[in-house]
Design a protein around this nucleic acid. Sequence first.
RNA 1: GGGCGCAUAGCUCAGUUGGUUAGAGCGCACGGUUCACAUCCGUGAGGUCGGAGGUUCGAGUCCUCCUGCGCCCACCA
Length: 907
Amino acid sequence: MTEPLSAQYDPAAIEAPLYREWEERGYFHADAERVNAEGRDPYVIVIPPPNVTSVLHMGHGLNNTIQDVLTRWRRMQGREALYLPGTDHAGIATQNVVERLIAGEGLTRDDLGREQFVERVWDFVDRTGTTILEQLRSIGCSCDWTRTRFTLEPDLSRAVREVFVRLYEKDLIYRGNYIINWCPRCLTALSDEEAEPEETAGRLYHIRYPVTGTVSSDMPRLPDGRPFITVATTRPETMLGDTAVAVHPADERYTGMIGGRVMLPLADRELPVVADDYVDPEFGSGVVKITPAHDPNDFELARRHDIPSVNVMTPDAAMNDSVPERFRGLDRFDARRAVVAELEELGLLERVEEHVHSVPHCYRCHTVVEPRLSEQWFVRMKPLAEPALAASRNGRVRFTPDRWTKVYDQWLENIRDWCISRQLWWGHRIPVWYCRNPGCGHVMALREDPTSCPRCGGSELEQDPDVLDTWFSSWLWPFSTLGWPDETADLKAFYPTHSLVTAPEILFFWVARMIMAGYEFMGDAPFTDVYLTGTVRDTQGRKMSKSLGNGIDPLEVVSLYGADALRYTVISSVGFGTDVYMDPDNLDASFGPGRNFCNKIWNAGRFALMNLGDEPVQTVDAVAADLELADRWILSRLDAASADVTRSLEAFRFHEAAEGGYHFFWGELADWYLELIKPRMQDRENAASREAAKATLVHVLDGAMRLLHPIMPFITEALWQRLPAPAGTAKEESLVIGHWPLSSGRDEEAEASMNALMELIGAIRTLRSEYNVPAGSRIDVRLTGQGAALQGALAAEARAVHRMCRVDAIRESAREGGGDVGAHAVLRNGADLFLPLAGIIDVEQERQRLGRELERIEGQLRGTEARLGSDKFTARAPADIVAREREKAESLRDQRSRLAAKLQGLG
RNA sequence: GGGCGCAUAGCUCAGUUGGUUAGAGCGCACGGUUCACAUCCGUGAGGUCGGAGGUUCGAGUCCUCCUGCGCCCACCA
């Protein structure tokens, strides 16, 4: 049926075939009917869709492993589990990739024209868009690939359009002016993410604006007698677009001027003086020039005070016709020089300061971004935010770690309208048409493309050239992927979904908006739990990124260490809500332990299978009467581990789930149970004992593989498939659809006995090590005063214990009247342990060795104490040196007493 | 500037509502190849839990302040 386990653990040999088998057998497919008709409990995760152009990085590795662990675990619990995959069309990112591509052919998008360019992008996406989904397979993600979605596919585009029109009809979408980031070289709008702030050495120009309105007597005056105020700016050329100056309402220096007027130099326009909290009285002169068309803050302020805007630049950032003629056509930086020179000439330039500040640059061409006023589409967010806020407050949506709840609430409480239009070609075209009939001018948002104007019947219709923000399709993802706006069986079965696993960076962009859309269009939250992962960083704490070149390629890790090692590593690195640190230059440090664990599982499995042989194995129930202490103990520990891992997963404590499985398998099953049953496995004399051990071994291995399967699906399946089914039981087809271990109860008595026994073995090993007892020599151990638990345990497991600490016998007998030499220890339960060492080690030699050691320590201690006893030393030496000496003395005294005790034991 | 978080072994981190002796992995030291595994086994060293106060019978855990890092948001014209 299945091949035996190879001598060497080789992940590459098992992973791909197993994944293919799982996928072919349809284990990952979720069936809506089983939920809708049979009443099975669903469990749903929709993937945060990666950019269609992206390749797998460690962040995906972390994220999707967590999602897969949750999915696999719930699937094993009997839920109808759906892990729904897909990709995002990622407007700007994708358009840029293709623009770079055609630049290689010497083409720009304008050369191609909109239609042809978009076709090129589709070509590209069709060819490369499944890369990342393939990569998710290689880390074992159990996605239902029959439901793969893409945000720009026709069904989802229909959802986007339906949503736009509905919101438009509810008057929740409107058109308005907004300052955007504009690259004057690329001639395109940039998202906030693409405008990269950079510390730049600039200048702060202090410019005098003559006051024409109300004047107080103590105001400074120009040489010609005119009073003035000083404003500070880093971009003097924009003053030509000033439409006001502003002061803080509580700034006593200027209260008298509020409502007054100043004269804008060079342009000779009068500007009003307004008061606004935005102004920081501490900065510069406390007076701000207001240029609404070229600064987002000024724009907001102007909106509050109903101040007009004057745009003074062309798209390529030259001065336009709104400025005095002598500046027209000058590039913005030439204009800056000209403006400054003229101000200086007029005596209006008070001073210039060096000023380092952060300036946004175009991430593509590094040109300084110019804020620019333009007309954009917006969503009114307040009405949508209310139910989303209620959802976190009433617990319908829970955030893990909990602290994110506050962050989420704060953002929603101060929500601002959402600018959804983008000046791009790749994306969902805004479904708005303008009637160009001069007498009509109707604006319409439509579900179907119009052929004529419904108002005037005219046929000169023009569609809005812009596309929608990428997030305008992603915020519908949890239900658009299930078939909305149709009422599908999938929607009925799988909405709302359950866990959303994503990075905190997109809490606002995406998570909050999905919750709003869920309530608005489905009447319920889109998921019940939001798990925010940490960020994957390098050892210097820098975020892993392609541009920094400090990334780790998950596929490289898979090929070097295996997918299971990768998964184990990321899962066990996920502290509760903390970032994940990995060293790109030392993969072994990060992934070695995971690989070693896999190796341990593999070898323990091989050992078990070798010993089990081909004979039928009994169920644990069938051999219940013959179970020995070790058997009862490991069964109880399996139960503890199951409860532990289950509890950890329920609380999204992945680190603990991984540690729990690891500790049970390695620290208890492999280190202790396998060692304890070695003598029994091939025992021909005592069949009952042998069969009890085998039955228990199969049972606990089966349980351990189940517990570890969500985290390490491949190796656990490979081993599990080869485990024999106990007589009279039917084996499940695969662990993927196998059941999660259920609690069967603890055996406190067995655990207490085993704990005592393990302590005894540890103590004997310690003494052997400390007294340099040669590994080969066997000794008799004497034990007195042991409790019933230990006594029983010793009787039950004598053979194994003797083997495990290389003793011939453990007798109940006291050390005889001081005559014996040997090593001595007291156990926690009060039992007294004595290892006679006469004839085992050269006692005299050991005594001399210890004696020399003791002398050496005492010598050092004398020196140290002498120093500490000297007033000169304690008074004059630096405090940290004195402290170090004290520490040293403490440690030396410690060593001395231990050595003395040992020597005493030797006679 | 506003908000949030972190500080525990040489390194990376656990430590659940306060409660026996603060744990793990890696690294380090010593000893081990008897046939599951040297990607292993055994043993050990190493911690005034960032600092100072406070609450308490009891504080790594709760409170206040300080110091040093990190992140998010808004960014000072």
